[in-house]
Design a protein around this nucleic acid. Structure first.
Length: 215
DNA sequence: GACCAGGCACATC
DNA sequence: GATGTGCATGGT
């Protein structure tokens, strides 16, 4: 089977298994961006605590984060780990929106082509490829596929790629296999995270109950 | 107490 | 271009 056929089969199987997941767990596009930064190499349960702290202090807006003292910010997001780094990253992201887009995410998303938006996001300190793509897809509703550790692990175990494949190579492989559609990419990435968490942990790679085991 | 979790920047070869 | 290291919490 060719790799694009395998990828289609995986997507189809996961859609049948999980149904509509309608992802990213956040109330607003800005909250998606904050979550995308806070979840870097971190369990989501820890990110939830950090976001809850920010909500309690009414700090889930670009202006508020920009104005808040960085040490105060760091203390609030402590549960998400790497808190000093991430406080600086949140500041950098908000500074970017303030300077170029009048604090406004929509203004940013409507300002240029997807390629240019991605380049601009990548120029922000603390925003790498996965974070940029998560923001584009889940906050901006742009048809961009998000690669993550689960994607690499699952795809490599099904012989589609090496575990350490280059990020952009795998992204293009999926985007050239699956119709460029926001809903497809949203659901596909979400279901890969689910199946990764449920059945494909680092420690037990081959789980008998995995819906993908017979592919 | 080790290992892991929805990465990224930076240094060095 | 590949490889190594620091960053840090909370759950298993």
């Amino acid at each position: 089977m060719k790799s694009h056929e395998k990828i289609e089969k995986i997507m189809q199987t996961l859609f049948e298994y999980y149904g509509s997941l309608n992802w990213w767990p956040a109330d607003t596009p800005f909250e998606v961006c904050v979550g995308a930064i806070l979840t870097q190499n971190t369990a989501w349960s820890n990110v939830e605590k950090a976001i809850e702290n920010l909500k309690k202090e009414n700090l889930l807006s670009c202006e508020a984060i920009y104005m808040t003292d960085i040490n105060v910010l760091a203390e609030l997001i402590k549960p998400s780990g790497y808190f000093n780094q991430k406080a600086k990253k949140l500041k950098a992201f908000c500074g970017f929106l303030k300077e170029g887009f009048n604090w406004n995410l929509d203004t940013f998303f409507n300002s240029a082509s997807i390629e240019k938006l991605r380049k601009q996001l990548l120029s922000i300190w603390g925003v790498g490829k996965e974070t940029a793509d998560s923001i584009l897809l889940y906050a901006g509703e742009k048809p961009v596929f998000v690669v993550d550790a689960y994607t690499k692990r699952i795809f490599s175990r099904h012989g589609i790629c090496k575990e350490n494949i280059d990020y952009d190579k795998l992204k293009l492989l999926v985007e050239n296999s699956i119709q460029r559609n926001v809903e497809f990419y949203n659901e596909f990435h979400a279901s890969l995270v689910y199946v990764g968490k449920d059945f494909c942990k680092k420690k037990n790679p081959l789980c008998e109950k995995c819906p993908l085991k017979d592919l």
